[in-house]
Computed example of a mutant assay.
Amino acid sequence: MSNFSDIMGYVGLTTGEAAAALNVSEDEIVRWCSTSDAPPLHIWQSLVRMLDEIRFSAEEAAKAADLDHLDASDLNSVQLMVPGQAASEFAGPKRAATALAVAALARVFV
């Protein structure tokens, strides 16, 4: 396992999706995930942009919620869009952003 692999898991990208999003081969993604070989800096920068898109989407969804009328059952129906080309094309980043938004909104009940 590698830090690259951990980020891939957090973002929720498959190796095929990561290869498409990062414009590299699936073999390179597998190598970076399963060995100590690290991707080049521009790949890390692309992942950081994708993580920023996910975080931004989660923050915007949480800000847009009507906290005065929020019910615990509302947490199960949070809908959001992930901006940016890389993150918006795949289900994993949307799931990650939704999870962050729901976690932020759930704090209302703590």
Rank of each mutant, 00 (worst) to 15 (best):
E53W: 07
F90C: 05
G92M: 06
A65I: 03
S57F: 05
Q79R: 13
M81N: 12
A65G: 06
E59F: 06
G92E: 06
A62D: 05
D74F: 01
E60T: 14
E59L: 12
S73R: 12
K63D: 14
P83V: 08
M81T: 15
A87E: 02
D74K: 00
P83C: 01
E60L: 14
A87V: 08
A61M: 10
A64K: 13
M81F: 09
D68G: 12
L75H: 06
L70R: 01
M81D: 13
F56E: 13
K94S: 12
F90D: 08
A86E: 02
F90T: 07
H69G: 05
V78K: 02
N76L: 12
D66V: 10
F90A: 12
E53M: 03
K63C: 03
A91K: 11
D71R: 14
D74E: 00
A62H: 04
V82K: 05
Q79G: 00
L70D: 07
S57N: 05
K94E: 11
S88V: 07
D66C: 08
H69Q: 08
A72K: 13
E53Q: 15
D68W: 01
A62F: 03
A64Q: 12
S57T: 06
V82M: 06
L70Q: 03
R55L: 08
R55E: 15
E89N: 12
F56S: 10
S73N: 04
D74V: 04
A61R: 03
S77P: 00
A61T: 09
S57Q: 02
E59W: 02
K63I: 04
R55A: 15
L80F: 09
A58M: 03
G92V: 09
L75N: 06
A64M: 04
F90P: 07
Q85T: 13
K63H: 10
N76D: 15
A65R: 07
A58T: 03
A61F: 07
M81R: 12
F56T: 14
I54V: 15
D71W: 00
S57D: 03
I54P: 10
Q79D: 11
R55G: 02
G92P: 11
V78A: 05
D66P: 10
F56D: 13
S77Y: 02
S77I: 11
V82T: 12
A65V: 09
P83N: 06
A86C: 04
G84L: 03
G92A: 07
D71E: 14
K63G: 01
E60I: 12
N76F: 10
Q79S: 13
A72R: 14
V82F: 07
E53L: 01
A86K: 11
A72W: 07
E60V: 15
N76P: 00
E53Y: 05
S77T: 14
F56R: 11
S57E: 02
